[in-house]
Design a protein around this nucleic acid. Sequence first.
DNA 1: CAGGCTAATTAGTTAGGCTAACTATCGTGA
DNA 2: TCACGATAGTTAGCCTAACTAATTAGCCTG
Lengths: 144, 144
Amino acid sequence: MTAERVPPAQLAPQLRDAITRLNRRVRQARPVGDLTVTQLSALTSLRLAGALTPRELADVERVQPPTMTKIVAKLEERGLVQRTPHPTDGRQVILAATEGGRAVLEQFERVRDEWLAHRLAELTEDQRDTLRQAAEILQQLARA
Amino acid sequence: MTAERVPPAQLAPQLRDAITRLNRRVRQARPVGDLTVTQLSALTSLRLAGALTPRELADVERVQPPTMTKIVAKLEERGLVQRTPHPTDGRQVILAATEGGRAVLEQFERVRDEWLAHRLAELTEDQRDTLRQAAEILQQLARA
DNA sequence: CAGGCTAATTAGTTAGGCTAACTATCGTGA
DNA sequence: TCACGATAGTTAGCCTAACTAATTAGCCTG
């Protein structure tokens, strides 16, 4: 199977279209535990990294610092994230998932991405493999 | 190249992650003409179809009718979309891109998806081909 | 130690999405 | 034929998610 030549200017609209529409769909399907996709993503990144400052977490999540302030505030309200002062730099704050936050994530892991996983299960092995490869490339693009 | 076995439950989080992050990125890069991605998408669908009712356009765009009312209102404010009564059914409305709306789209076509196209150009042919295939599958998922 | 930089938050705005409820019209069956 | 249920669209009200600009607090350096 030879790769077809794909002009970027043609692929871009198609890809953007697919991403925005699917993003809407994924956000709509928000059944479990009243955490939004955004909050879930931030909490996951936080647990993965262990501990981060708000700025660092904002960078990882690709949002501006004030946006992260709000997301973290919501997570803190629910007791899923803890804010502790930086040991030497009084300006900074260290964020970490609480015991409760980790528990919620583990709970989520069992039912996570239910809608999407369901749809993916209906695809062929080949299609899933294509998406697996694509996901890596897309993550790379998002990081750029 | 044999397709690797990919469990949907494992692919789902990865794909969701890639999509939400990239979606944020694409939204951020909104330089030209103050139209949002959502508005641009609706206007494009409208021009493509020629004319649609609000309900039809909402279905195409995968949003609920009241949401489309708002989007169309914004486009109408700018004179990019025209609303005309249905010839026989007094309940319905026909939406169409105006001359101005088409002009804006043509203007966009020259600079459209600049950020994304730029990033895509940095990939290999193989990677772009993977994304092309993936885009079709993702659109199919979004429609499901 | 004054002034500039950095981290985080607050304030305010906008877009975009939803559901519920309302209005107007259509179509149909007693 | 006309009353009533269904349909199309909008309005109202709510929420999330994002932004920029401005503020506060703390750090550091000439």
